[in-house]
Amino acid sequence: KELVLALYDYQEKSPREVTMKKGDILTLLNSTNKDWWKVEVNGRQGAVPAAYVKKL
């Protein structure tokens, strides 16, 4: 499985998103959308802005 690093804090704004903190390591589930990537963090799945994460 592919991992990404959170470059910034992000507070979810809808139920389809997830909150992450700078430095979090997230499991990347889907990166086909260039703006929003689906990730899993702390057992929750949701979208985060692609510009806020970097593939490891």
Rank of each mutant, 00 (worst) to 15 (best):
K1E: 11
K1V: 14
K1P: 14
K1D: 10
K1A: 12
K1Y: 14
E2K: 10
E2W: 13
E2T: 13
E2V: 14
E2N: 12
E2H: 12
E2M: 13
E2A: 12
E2S: 11
L3H: 10
L3P: 03
L3T: 09
V4T: 02
V4G: 14
V4N: 01
L5C: 12
L5R: 09
L5M: 14
L5Y: 11
L5F: 10
L5P: 00
L5A: 06
A6G: 04
A6D: 01
A6F: 03
A6R: 00
A6I: 03
L7P: 00
L7K: 05
L7I: 10
L7F: 03
L7Q: 04
L7V: 08
L7S: 02
L7D: 01
Y8E: 11
Y8A: 12
Y8T: 08
Y8I: 10
Y8D: 08
D9Y: 04
D9T: 05
D9C: 05
D9H: 05
D9I: 02
Y10R: 01
Y10E: 01
Y10S: 01
Y10W: 10
Y10A: 00
Y10Q: 01
Y10D: 01
Y10F: 07
Q11S: 12
Q11R: 10
Q11T: 14
Q11W: 13
E12L: 08
E12R: 13
E12G: 15
E12M: 13
E12F: 08
E12K: 13
E12W: 06
E12I: 07
K13L: 09
K13A: 11
K13H: 09
K13Y: 06
K13S: 11
K13I: 07
K13T: 13
K13R: 14
K13C: 13
S14M: 06
S14R: 07
S14I: 04
S14P: 05
S14D: 10
S14H: 10
S14A: 08
S14Q: 07
S14F: 06
P15C: 11
P15V: 10
P15G: 10
P15M: 10
P15N: 11
R16C: 15
R16A: 14
R16M: 14
R16K: 13
R16E: 14
R16F: 15
R16H: 15
R16I: 12
R16T: 14
E17S: 07
E17V: 05
E17L: 06
E17N: 05
E17P: 05
E17A: 06
V18F: 15
V18C: 07
V18G: 02
V18T: 05
T19N: 06
T19F: 05
T19E: 03
T19Y: 03
T19Q: 05
T19P: 06
M20P: 00
M20N: 00
M20I: 15
M20L: 09
M20K: 02
K21Y: 09
K21N: 09
K21C: 10
K21A: 09
K21T: 09
K21S: 09
K21G: 04
K21P: 00
K21R: 13
K22Y: 05
K22D: 02
K22C: 07
K22G: 05
G23E: 02
G23C: 09
G23L: 02
D24M: 13
D24H: 04
D24V: 04
D24I: 03
D24L: 04
D24S: 06
D24K: 02
I25G: 00
I25M: 06
I25H: 05
I25C: 08
I25S: 02
L26Y: 10
L26G: 09
L26D: 01
L26K: 00
L26E: 01
T27Y: 12
T27S: 08
T27V: 15
T27L: 14
T27I: 15
T27F: 12
L28H: 01
L28C: 04
L28Q: 00
L28F: 03
L28R: 00
L28I: 06
L29Q: 03
L29G: 02
L29M: 08
L29D: 02
N30C: 14
N30S: 13
N30R: 07
N30V: 09
N30F: 06
N30L: 08
N30W: 07
N30A: 11
S31E: 15
S31W: 09
S31T: 11
S31Q: 12
S31C: 13
S31G: 12
S31M: 11
S31H: 09
S31R: 09
S31K: 09
T32N: 13
T32C: 13
T32K: 10
T32Q: 12
T32E: 14
T32I: 12
N33Q: 10
N33K: 08
N33L: 08
N33V: 05
N33T: 08
N33I: 06
K34L: 10
K34Q: 11
K34V: 11
K34F: 08
K34D: 12
K34M: 10
K34S: 13
K34G: 11
K34I: 10
K34P: 14
D35A: 10
D35T: 13
D35Y: 15
D35F: 15
D35N: 12
D35Q: 10
D35R: 12
D35G: 08
W36M: 07
W36E: 05
W36Y: 08
W36D: 01
W36G: 00
W36H: 03
W36N: 02
W36R: 02
W37G: 00
W37R: 00
W37H: 02
W37A: 05
W37Q: 01
K38A: 12
K38E: 15
K38C: 15
K38T: 15
K38R: 13
K38G: 09
K38F: 15
K38W: 15
K38M: 15
K38D: 15
V39Q: 01
V39H: 00
V39G: 00
V39T: 00
E40R: 06
E40L: 08
E40T: 06
E40P: 00
E40I: 09
E40K: 06
E40G: 05
V41W: 08
V41N: 13
V41C: 10
V41P: 00
V41Q: 10
V41I: 15
V41K: 14
N42K: 10
N42L: 08
N42P: 05
G43P: 01
G43F: 05
G43K: 05
G43V: 02
G43L: 04
G43D: 06
G43N: 07
R44P: 01
R44W: 05
R44H: 08
R44L: 07
R44M: 08
Q45V: 15
Q45T: 13
Q45D: 07
Q45A: 12
G46Y: 09
G46F: 13
G46H: 05
G46D: 01
G46N: 01
G46P: 00
G46I: 10
G46V: 10
G46K: 05
A47E: 15
A47F: 15
A47I: 15
A47C: 15
A47L: 15
A47W: 15
V48C: 04
V48H: 01
V48S: 01
V48F: 02
V48W: 02
V48T: 02
V48Y: 00
V48D: 02
P49M: 03
P49T: 02
P49G: 02
P49N: 04
P49C: 06
P49E: 04
A50K: 07
A50F: 02
A50E: 04
A50D: 04
A50I: 04
A50T: 06
A50R: 09
A50Y: 02
A51N: 13
A51K: 14
A51P: 07
A51W: 12
A51V: 09
A51H: 13
A51M: 11
A51C: 15
A51D: 14
Y52R: 08
Y52D: 06
Y52K: 10
Y52P: 04
Y52M: 15
V53G: 01
V53M: 07
V53A: 02
V53Y: 01
V53I: 09
V53T: 03
V53H: 02
K54F: 08
K54P: 05
K54C: 15
K54R: 12
K54M: 14
K54H: 11
K55P: 11
K55A: 09
K55F: 11
K55R: 13
K55L: 14
L56M: 10
L56Y: 09
L56V: 11
